[in-house]
Design a protein around this nucleic acid. Structure first.
Lengths: 330, 330
DNA sequence: GTGAAAGCGCTAACAG
DNA sequence: CTGTTAGCGCTTTCAC
């Protein structure tokens, strides 16, 4: 690979001049400029980004840690993030934490050591301590989606409480009073918020509650068994699946039990995605603004890189309710 | 951020010694060693990966260009790739080409300029010329999934011809003779291979063919209209959707036309994915070994990085046929 | 067994 | 207007 020296020699100028025509640093006479450009072309010179980074102390790279790229919600976020980053001249180092807190920690350190300019994390647990430290060490961090804890970190997510409340109210308005809530794990505060929204909606409607109606199904490999059992035991008229994965599980359970769907049992999901059109009747769901989430997170981080030192931001986006066919009036 | 100099000063040794205890370069006496380790700990020293890269001419980073992370087939590939890379101490710069050849080219150059150690590309078009050049310049490249053209590049994909042939034969064995083939675009050789497998299966069964039965639906935003029209015009008893996206489209068309499914019309898909379980009857499909594809691609690339200079490899993995409910015997 | 110093490729401050 | 040079943080010779 040709270096800046090779170009300088071939063009008969100093390396400073090469650098200046390439980066528009200072004025260079037309003659030298074209000589340089010519040399660049004949050598196929491409600047060494690593050297640039070492020198400038900027890598133009963002680190991104995601629990599972395979989940359409996360892959949608990744897409939005990558696009925003690219538009602003940044590249993205993508890591998969596989819902493993320890791995997540190691990955974050590895990214920091690689000198990423900033970090976007969808954490495995609420507001991990180590991220505060990284931030204190000067690495801008923004938390995405899972934004629990009264953090001093920037974070963008959705108003889970409100979203779940609106969803539950919709179910209630459709005449449902026996509503099963499926959650992944109550260890995540955004899931707890959803549970709380559900509870408050019930309370406001004067519907008696029972913690037993909130079913914890597991974060990584949610169990069908739990859902089957809960349905058989409680005989709900509606299920509110608070996660896209859980909608899938609910469907499987409903089919397994050969319940009439949606006549006998209604289903309200969380998140909208291309493949949910495979389901018939078409899934009604609380939908998160995936693009906007990714975009906002990138925006905030990039602003920080530009020197924004305002106090930590907290962006809570609203969800929509997509009313389709899987919820039937009672 | 502390540098190696700070550590050396605090430990009262030279930077060479610090480097040596950290990288196990040469023997260091126990006393100095522990002094260094101590200093590292109190300073919270983390080596600067950029400097290491500049010096060692290795970034421990792989570039990955994918047409659409949002497609479960690709995101599955990304997951497998990332895992393999991570297991061997590599990180991944992920780029989304959005099915845009020009963007893909720019991204590849940007990655090369960032000195990635190797490149894995799922190209937008068959065997792009520029990749040969990058390889000639010393950048190991492996093509994944879309591996058309008689390349001198390493490539791993699936035996599309065979897979489509087996799928079509299955349909024929179930008594179907009027089989519509849905393809994204015949510009991709792997799709052409699928079409060819379909044709050969028909030919072998003595079923007359008509190029009109192969419907091109478009690569990025396949059109429902084309499918609707084709079904109405040809009245097939079965549809073979040669792409996961196309299965979705086929379903939508079948529903729109209110055809009995699978009694009136059968559907065979391509690719298996978690969310396809939403479909009832459950989709029968030709399934690609996603994990193995990703793993093999990473393997080959990493071997090249280790110095493997054998001639370009071509790995063709076989597909499976998942027989479920969406294809009905005639 | 350890330290000093060169140099990876680049940018920017300093000279002219 | 352009060239020379220091130095980013590290690894690795070369010297002792």
């Amino acid at each position: 690979m040709a270096t800046i020296k090779d170009v300088a020699k071939l063009a008969g100028v100093s390396i400073a001049t090469v650098s200046n025509v390439l980066n528009g640093g200072r004025y260079v006479s037309p003659e030298l400029r074209s000589a340089v450009l010519q040399a660049v072309r004949t050598l196929g010179y491409v600047p060494n980004g690593v050297a640039q980074s070492l020198r400038s102390r900027k890598t133009q790279t963002l680190g991104l840690i995601v629990p599972d790229i395979t989940n359409p919600f996360f892959s949608g976020l990744v897409q939005a993030l990558e696009r925003s980053a690219r538009d602003r001249g940044y590249q993205m180092l993508l890591c998969n934490s596989e819902e493993n807190a320890e791995l997540e920690f190691d990955l974050a350190l590895a990214l920091a050591s690689r000198q990423v300019d900033g970090l976007i994390v969808i954490p495995t647990q609420d507001s991990p301590e180590y991220l505060r430290k990284l931030k204190a060490d000067g690495l801008p961090v923004v938390l995405l989606d899972r934004i629990g804890g009264e953090d001093d970190l920037d974070r963008v997510g959705v108003d889970n409480f409100q979203a779940a409340r609106v969803g539950t109210e919709f179910l209630i308005r459709q005449g449902h009073r026996e509503i099963l809530l499926l959650v992944s794990t109550l260890e995540l505060s955004n899931i707890r918020d959803r549970a709380e929204g559900y509870r408050q909606a019930l309370a406001a409607a004067g519907i008696p509650q029972d913690p037993q109606w909130v079913i914890e199904c597991g974060k990584d490999a949610p169990s069908l068994e739990a859902v089957l059992e809960a349905i058989q035991h409680h005989r709900p008229t509606a299920i509110f699946a608070s996660t896209n994965r859980l909608s899938l599980l609910a469907i499987q359970a409903i089919r397994r039990l050969k319940l009439g769907f949606p006549e006998e049992i209604s289903l309200l999901g969380f998140d909208d995605f291309e493949w949910s059109t495979l389901l018939e009747p078409y899934l009604s769901a609380v939908v998160q603004p995936i693009e906007a989430l990714g975009f906002q997170a990138a925006q905030i981080l990039l602003d920080r890189l530009k020197g924004d030192t305002s106090p930590p931001k907290r962006v809570l986006l609203p969800c929509d309710l997509a009313v389709r066919q899987s919820v039937q009036r009672r």
